[in-house]
Design a binder for these strands. Structure first.
Lengths: 190, 190
DNA sequence: TGAAGGCAACCTATGCATAGGTAGGTTAGC
DNA sequence: GCTAACCTACCTATGCATAGGTTGCCTTCA
């Protein structure tokens, strides 16, 4: 009936559940109840839970690409772009009960279907590659001080922000994300 | 039979399982199979899974205290102490399939028994407090440059290392932990 | 134009494995 | 003979998944 957007709604709700409870901890029943269909109907759209997870990661990666493209389009300096990257994480932390979808998957990687690992890997790599490129451009433009590999710095930023989201939710405060930004500043400001 | 150390073995194996698979994803059966008793017998030592988790966190916190005390005892400069703190995380990453027990619990916090949240909070707080103290002492001694609050820096370090463990396991490399250390160096070295 | 067919999108009913947990019995050492 | 430490047997709830039926729209063609 509602047809095409049922799949989309399933992805929306599933994303929320994974980010709040983790991939193992959410059930088809949780999902079905919120969307308003029966659990068996979920299998029509996504044959297995692994398929659903894969679709989630694919969409989440596309959303990342779009967000990064928008940042590149709207902000012209490296420092502004980096600040907006941090803002993406700050928004997630602000929900109070969510972490990054990819971070949630990564946290459960030990029990995840093997097919999903490359997708998790790719998401992290994409983030790091963009950061590395942005940092390098900022250094060439003289906005960001040199010192240490750009990729090293990029990797650390991703780790720190992912960790900060988990940390923030655990203690019920967004302060860990702010702490990451403040503590990092000397590395990006001359 | 094996008596008193059965409880200890249960904790050992449970810790390994939680660090590898997460709190939700490991079962009494996994635990019983490895330890060599029946699942029902686990309840004799730990009435509920929440009790087991609580005992795990209590012990893990004690181990942290011991590790920090040992570092303080054996290393005299702030920079060496901080390096050894990072080494604790490096060791975990080196296993290839584990993350910090507290980080694993924090990642599953949305479905954790409420009683455990204060314990997770306390573990993170303890780590941050020790780091803050160590950083402050290092600054007073002129080992570590000033700039930014010590607590902010401490919070960021914990987030970064926790994130790095998850990151490292997800990509099958310990490099993220090394990246954190290298990227942070300018903040601790004049 | 309207009856027939086909397909997308759901449903009911069911299966089978596993989850954590309980009740009550057995065994062996102090 | 008591008790710590384990066992067998069982319970109820829930997990994901499958089989096969129902509904309604959309097309096709006599």
């Amino acid at each position: 009936m509602t047809s095409a957007n049922t799949a989309e709604r399933l992805l929306d709700v599933a994303a929320s559940l994974v980010q709040r409870r983790g991939f193992n901890a959410f059930s088809y029943r949780d999902l079905a109840d919120v969307v308003g269909i029966k659990t068996a109907s979920i299998h029509y759209h996504f044959p297995t839970k692994a398929d659903l997870a894969s679709a989630l990661l694919t969409r989440y990666s596309e959303q990342l690409d779009e967000a990064l493209a928008e940042i590149d389009r709207e902000s012209r300096t490296a420092r502004k772009r980096l600040a907006r990257f941090v803002d993406l994480y700050r928004e997630t932390a602000a929900t109070g009960d969510r972490i990054c979808l990819c971070g949630a998957m990564a946290a459960d990687i030990g029990t995840l279907p093997d097919a999903l690992r490359p997708q998790v890997h790719a998401y992290l790599d994409r983030s790091i590659a963009w950061l590395e490129q942005t940092i390098s451009a900022g250094r060439r433009a003289g906005e960001i001080p040199s010192g240490g590999g750009a990729r090293t710095l990029a990797s650390m930023l991703v780790s720190a922000l992912q960790g900060a989201l988990i940390h923030a939710r655990a203690i019920g405060s967004t302060e860990p994300v702010n702490a990451v930004e403040r503590a990092m500043k000397p590395l990006f400001k001359s």
